[in-house]
Amino acid sequence: MPKEWTAKQDRQYEHIKDSEKEQGASTKRAKEIAARTVNKNRAQAGQTKTASRSSVQDKSPQQRGGERSGTNKPKGPTRDQLYNEAKKKNIDGRSKMSKADLARALGRN
């Protein structure tokens, strides 16, 4: 952990690293993910001397919430999120629809 990190950033790094290891990532990969997350937050807060445009202008890692994670799981909103949107739009039959059906009914294909 770099000397420039605050105590809070050290704790965040350790928490992310432990969480990634629990999810099956190797120690090396967990450390990399944790460091990148903390460094991106530092760049967005203006605590670094240099920062890439994508680090500063992109969503924070907390907002992104794994949208670009390297898994084979389906991306995008959950079925519950789609259901709530369908409920707001008063789409009939929404309670019996699958995630794919809800996405089609909302015009998300």
Score class of each variant (00 low, 15 high):
Pro74Val: 05
Gly24Asp: 05
Arg64Cys: 01
Ser19Leu: 02
Gly76Thr: 05
Ser26Asp: 07
Ala45Gly: 01
Gln63Ala: 14
Ala51Val: 10
Glu85Ile: 07
Arg42Leu: 12
Lys87Glu: 15
Glu22Pro: 01
Thr37Trp: 13
Lys75Cys: 02
Ser55Phe: 14
Ala45Met: 06
Thr6Cys: 11
Asp10Glu: 15
Arg64Ser: 07
Thr50Asn: 10
Gly76Ser: 06
Ala43Ile: 00
Lys40Ile: 11
Arg42His: 03
Gln63Asn: 11
Pro77Met: 13
Glu67Met: 03
Arg94Glu: 13
Gly107Val: 04
Trp5Lys: 08
Glu32His: 06
Gln63Tyr: 09
Arg53Thr: 11
Arg104Glu: 11
Ser60Gly: 15
Arg79Pro: 05
Gly24Pro: 05
Ser98Gln: 05
Arg68Gly: 11
Arg42Val: 01
Ala43Phe: 02
Arg64Phe: 04
Ser95Ile: 00
Gly93Glu: 08
Thr48Asp: 10
Glu14Trp: 06
Glu85Thr: 10
Asn84Lys: 14
Thr27Gly: 00
Lys73Asp: 14
Ala86Asn: 09
Ser55Met: 15
Arg94Gln: 15
Arg11His: 10
Ile91Tyr: 14
Lys96Trp: 07
Arg42Cys: 08
Ala103Phe: 04
Glu85Leu: 09
Tyr13Gly: 02
Glu32Leu: 11
Ser60Glu: 12
Arg104His: 09
Ser52Pro: 00
Ile91Ser: 13
Lys40Gln: 15
Gln23Phe: 02
Leu102Gly: 08
Gly46Gln: 10
Arg36Trp: 10
Ser55His: 15
Ala100Pro: 00
Pro61His: 09
Ser98Lys: 02
Thr71Cys: 00
Pro77Gln: 10
Arg11Cys: 00
Lys28Arg: 15
Glu20Phe: 11
Ser19Val: 01
Arg94Ile: 13
Gln57Pro: 00
Asp18Met: 03
Leu106Trp: 05
Tyr83Arg: 14
Met97Ser: 08
Asn90Lys: 15
Pro61Tyr: 06
Ser60Lys: 15
Arg104Val: 03
Lys3Arg: 08
Arg79Ile: 04
Leu106Pro: 05
Trp5Gln: 06
Arg94Asp: 13
Asn90Phe: 05
Tyr83Ser: 08
Pro2Cys: 00
Gln23Thr: 01
Lys89Gly: 10
Gly66Tyr: 07
Thr48Tyr: 04
Gly93Phe: 06
Ala51Tyr: 13
